[in-house]
């Protein structure tokens, strides 16, 4: 059984994800995260001995030859909210 996440751990996780959470956020999110953890706990109880599940299946390596297959870079740039020439612009995060 996984122990439910305590608030301090939730705060660290939020910080790692650059999320600014208020006390209220933490309380409501705490419940939701607990539900997720409970769900994983019940999955972990399933008997998987002898099953290939959870291991990447094929015995052979999955490799790609070293060949250039250029895509449509311009189409991707169109999704950027702001451009400066071909650079994608974001607020300074130094």
């Amino acid at each position: 059984m996984i122990h439910s996440m305590d608030v301090s751990e939730l705060k660290i996780t939020a910080e790692l994800a650059n999320l600014d959470l208020t006390g209220e956020d933490l309380a409501s999110l705490g419940n939701e995260v607990e539900k997720i953890l409970d769900y994983f706990s019940s999955m972990m109880e399933a008997d998987t001995a002898g099953l290939a599940a959870g291991k990447a299946g094929s015995a052979a390596n999955r490799l790609r030859p070293d060949v250039r297959t250029p895509g449509d870079a311009d189409a991707l740039l169109e999704n950027a909210p702001e451009l400066e020439g071909r650079f994608i612009v974001i607020p300074n995060v130094l």
Binding site: E84, I88, V89, I90, P91, N92
Partner: peptide, 9 residues
């Protein structure tokens, strides 16, 4: 990093 913005490549 250029002033108040950052340019990404």
């Amino acid at each position: 990093h250029a002033g108040d913005m950052s340019l990404l490549d």
